[in-house]
Amino acid sequence: MTTKSNSISRSWWWKILAIVMLVYTFIMGFLGPVPAMPIINESIRNLYFHVTMWMAMITLMFVNVVYSLKYLSSGKLYHDLVGEESARMAMVFASAGLITGMIWANFTWGAPWVNDPQLNGTAATMLIYAAYFILRNAITDEIKRARIGSVYGIFAFVMMFVFIMIIPKMNDSLHPGKGGNPGFNKYDLDSNMRMVFYPAVIGWTLFGVWMMSLRVRLRKIEEKIHNA
């Protein structure tokens, strides 16, 4: 089967781009100039390694929604497969983001888990996506599983948006840009940091998509062996 998405997952240019961006992040992330601020000090560089995890997670969850919608309109199980694997990869990034966030919070806010709407919202989102996999595994019929999984995937994305993007902005949160706190883009995130932050987001996201596409291809091979 030579679909368009298959040829993209086999091409190399975007994988090389991901590597270049990541190596750039790992070098400039430590050496690039950052604003000197109390309490946060050099740990502001976590912007390139912690915040990017969430950016990659949100992108992969968006891929999940797109492929869920694609499955519902086309009925091709391949679309459902991509949707499932992107949600799995999103969970990997969410775990990494949660652990790094707890380490960062421990040294700047004083505790690994504070009663913050952003943190609790993230926990709720992860539980919602955990339920996505439980729901899928509970259904043995693969067409039924794909359809229910896709519908739930759309619901989960909406809930993620509410829990991570809306509720924390309505309440007071320690995170920048939420509640009474100024956003990074007001004065913290100066143009020097942008020069590293945006490539870091692109690099981590592409790297995540790469890992996801490898799993999709392995699942396809597995399927072919199973059918042979």
Partner: peptide, 10 residues
């Protein structure tokens, strides 16, 4: 440290 991190990513 920077070189080590870069090598790990490569």
């Amino acid at each position: 440290v920077v070189v080590v991190a870069a090598v790990v990513s490569i």
